[in-house]
Design a protein around this nucleic acid. Structure first.
Length: 489
RNA sequence: GGCGACGUAGCCAAGUGGUUAAGGCGGGGGUCUGCAAAACCCCUAUACACCGGUUCGAAUCCGGUCGUCGCCUCCA
């Protein structure tokens, strides 16, 4: 397995340091609903973790929640609620989104506010070693003290200084020094510390948590490319200075950023689509396919067309695994596809390539099925790779037998079609079947067309008419159509 | 200004030195069907931004040009 390491800007053989892969991914600051950019990052690291497990690695996955920072305080003040309440609300919202997207929960989700003791311990250690200094109730990291500073983002302090002005508070020794502990202003939440009342800086929590939950040296640290500098650079400085052990992280993995139009989708630019908004229009599978269909290190352009294409693509896979296996004789062997899939994923998690293999397999399954070859085993391979590794749900169609000739399936996400609706729909389908027998094609087609408009798609097969709900029609609309046709239930 | 990434068919997007340039969506034709839908078959890039170079050979390496984006401040 090869992975691209931001630290060396090249792909390297993946060799974890111990029996268990230690994986840390930067989590959210919960002051608003999560957007598609978050979806991209967490879907990707979910797939990476799933794939590691698929390849028989044990994985311990930690993700932080930055539940105290300036943004949270500002937003809470705007809404006139306590910062903790705001953070709780959007942390819950985050988990709802993650669950909806079928992202497996991390092993631990430490919160900044829950790790103050460890944070203080690390800061004190850095002061003791001369890497940090208190000033005016705050504590800063002395970047000039760390000779490696800049190794991840590949920039030098002097170059950074020469470029833009680093914004410095007067009490800093060097404008590039960053805060480990921030003295609290009046009215802000605070915790007691050896340096007075205050709260942790943003970067220190990740160093503290990863140290506490994963140890001094970890295998994978992930996040969006926008975190490379300064966040991850600072984490390295803190952790390696504190423990004296290098490297803090063996493989740094960064995903590309989602763009909306020409710009990066971000909270600060305000050009975002939330996960909740996207989920009202697109299935979780479609969203995952949209994300996984391009390489994780490339920027992803958000587009409705892209999502629509992904909806169709998801449907294609779902149909291939759902079709009846009426074949006989020797089974279709999907082993070569499985190998290709693994080969693709082994190469820096090339999910686009891996998906292409699954589409090829779907195609092969359809061909084999049409030819009367047994496809059950191949369908099993497709389903297991898609579900286990890519985290797709790929619900196998189940047909509800309303009558012996009418089969209804429900593809509407988490929607239970009420009996009242099923009853009316099946009555209409019965009517259409009758019309077809009597060769009243016009009336039959009218029923099919109207049902389609109401959200029910019909397909005539040898086994009978199959009905799929795209969405649940209202009883009223069905009743009015029944009345129009002069049919009583 | 410094650092980095990208520019492949109508759209999205793999491929990063060598047979006919993946896959998805869309489009055209056909098989099946009463008609559809689904599925299947065929077609849909005259060399991959442009220019120059290295090489027996480049979309793939090097240099330049143009364009787009990201980071350098909070951000997945």
């Amino acid at each position: 397995m090869r992975v691209y390491n931001t630290l060396f800007r090249k792909k390297e053989e993946f060799l974890p340091q111990g029996d268990e892969v230690k994986m840390y991914v930067c989590g959210v600051t919960p002051y608003d609903d999560s957007h598609i950019g978050h979806a991209m990052s967490y879907v990707i690291f979910d797939v990476i973790r799933r794939y590691l497990k698929f390849r028989d690695y044990k994985v311990k996955y930690v993700q932080n929640v930055t539940d105290i920072d300036d943004k949270i305080i500002d937003r809470a003040n705007q809404r006139d609620i306590p910062p903790a309440e705001l953070a709780k609300k959007f942390t819950d919202s985050y988990f709802e989104d993650m669950d909806a997207l079928n992202i497996e929960r991390a092993d631990v989700y430490p919160k900044a506010t829950g790790e103050i003791a460890k944070i203080i311990e690390v800061i004190q250690g850095l002061i003791d070693k001369g890497f940090a200094y208190p000033a005016d109730g705050s504590v800063y990291f002395r970047v000039r003290k760390d000779p490696d500073y800049g190794k991840l983002s590949h920039r030098s302090l002097d170059a950074m200084m020469a470029g833009e002005c680093a914004i410095g508070s007067e009490e800093k020794e060097d404008p590039m020094d960053f805060a480990l502990w921030k003295a609290s202003k009046p009215g802000e939440p605070f915790w007691e510390s050896p340096w007075g009342e205050g709260r942790p800086g943003w970067h220190i929590e990740c160093s503290a948590m990863s140290l506490k939950y994963l140890g001094e040296q970890i295998d994978i640290h992930g996040g969006g490319q926008d975190l490379i500098f300064p966040h991850h650079e600072n984490e390295i400085a803190q952790s390696e200075s504190f423990t004296g052990k290098k490297p803090f992280v063996k493989y740094w993995l960064h995903n590309g950023l989602v763009q909306l139009g020409e710009d990066k989708m971000s909270k600060s630019l305000g050009n975002l689509v939330t996960i909740k908004q996207a989920l009202t229009k697109y299935s979780p599978d479609a969203i995952r396919i949209f994300i996984l269909n391009s390489h994780y290190r490339s920027p992803l352009k958000y587009s409705e067309e892209g999502l629509e294409a992904a909806v169709k693509a998801a449907e294609r896979l779902r149909r291939a695994v759902s079709r009846d296996d009426s074949g006989s004789g020797e089974a279709f062997d999907a082993e070569s596809y499985r190998k290709q899939f693994i080969e693709a994923m082994d190469d820096d998690f090339n999910t686009a390539q891996a998906l292409a293999v699954l589409f090829d397999l779907a195609s092969a399954i359809n061909q084999a099925g049409d030819a009367g070859v047994s496809i059950g085993q191949a369908q099993g391979t497709l389903v297991s790779l898609a579900r286990e590794v890519l985290g797709l749900k790929l619900p196998r169609t189940t047909y509800l037998e309303l009558t012996e000739r009418i089969l209804i399936r429900d593809t509407v996400k988490a929607t239970v079609i009420p009996d009242t609706v099923n009853k009316r729909v099946s009555r209409l389908i019965e009517e259409r079947l009758k019309c077809r027998e009597e060769k009243k094609w016009q009336r039959a087609d009218e029923i099919r067309k109207k049902l389609d408009e109401l959200g029910v798609v019909l397909e005539d097969t040898k086994a009978g008419t199959r009905a799929a709900y795209k969405r649940a029609p209202s009883v009223e609309s069905l009743d009015s159509f029944l009345k129009e046709l002069g049919i009583t239930l």
